[in-house]
């Protein structure tokens, strides 16, 4: 099949500018998703997702999408998310890439279950796309994914689509999440130390539980105080409880 005729090699600046203004001026998420859908549909992108990828016991994130209903049903029923290399790539904090690159890796690894996801998607007319994983600033893993049939994904087109995705995600996030204090990024060890501090454990006790020395625990505590800009662990615990970090630490 010839490359999608609607695909422009790149999205022209006036379109990008208009989309950016719509995003920043939007008062409802519907305004943004409609504008996004209009840009993407005109370029043959019939599946898109913008939002978080997972949750910790209760849903704390957000997600917006346009996915063919039959494909969505099949994807959920077959539990494709567990094997989908594109989804897993984003979940594991990979970099921006195309679906084709993820497929190449799956082929190289001989991962038949992963390749099944690509084969089935193609049956629903979705055979190419790109993924923009979003991580950092204490948020849950998130991503923007655009897919369609035989998409034009030249470097210029990718540059435009990544920008469109970034603007959509951040604008939707502002409306849904608002401007809440940004938690610092903590390592797994720091989260564990935080969790035991919240349980009232001393550095010695925490060290015994984690199998590390009390001095190392104190190093992690110092790092936590630095990252939160606090003088005392008690203050760190209060802030971590408020920004949701403690919840994540407790559910590790």
């Amino acid at each position: 099949m010839a490359q999608n005729e609607l695909s422009a090699s790149r999205i022209e600046f006036p379109v990008l500018q208009s989309f950016s203004e719509q995003c920043l001026g939007a008062t409802t998420t519907l305004e943004i998703t409609r504008a996004l859908d209009a840009i993407l549909q005109a370029r043959g992108i019939k599946q898109w997702y913008v939002g978080n990828l997972g949750f910790v016991n209760e849903w704390r994130g957000f997600g917006f999408d346009e996915i063919p209903p039959a494909w969505r049903k099949r994807y959920v029923e077959a539990e494709h998310a567990r094997f989908d290399p594109v989804f897993q790539h984003a979940l594991n904090q990979g970099g921006k890439t195309t679906w084709a690159q993820c497929k190449l890796i799956a082929e190289h690894l001989g991962d038949k279950r992963a390749l099944q996801v690509f084969d089935e998607a193609a049956e629903y007319g979705i055979d190419s796309g790109l993924i923009l994983p979003i991580h950092g600033l204490g948020d849950l893993p998130a991503a923007v994914s655009f897919g369609g049939e035989d998409l034009d994904l030249t470097p210029d087109a990718q540059a435009s689509l990544y920008l469109i995705g970034a603007l959509a995600y951040e604008s939707l996030r502002r409306l849904v999440v608002g401007f809440k204090p940004i938690p610092p990024l903590l390592t797994e060890r720091e989260l564990e130390v935080l969790r035991w501090a919240a349980e009232g454990k001393s550095a010695v006790d925490t060290g015994a539980i984690m199998g590390i020395s009390a001095f190392t625990v104190q190093d992690h505590q110092k790092s936590l105080r630095t990252k939160y800009g606090c003088a005392k662990m008690t203050q760190v615990l209060v802030l971590a409880a408020l920004d949701g970090t403690l919840l994540i630490a407790r559910q590790m």
């Binding site: 950016s20 920043l24 921006k96 950092g136 540059a159 603007l167 951040e170 502002r174 940004i182």
Partner: peptide, 27 residues
């Protein structure tokens, strides 16, 4: 794009003023 998102999340209303371009594999 990553830094632009970080700035937006910082509260800055970042507006593109030109066509994006791939430089060293990054938009």
């Amino acid at each position: 794009v990553d830094l632009l998102m970080k700035k937006m999340r910082c509260g800055l209303d970042a507006k593109p003023i030109g066509q994006p371009r791939m430089i060293d594999g990054e938009s």
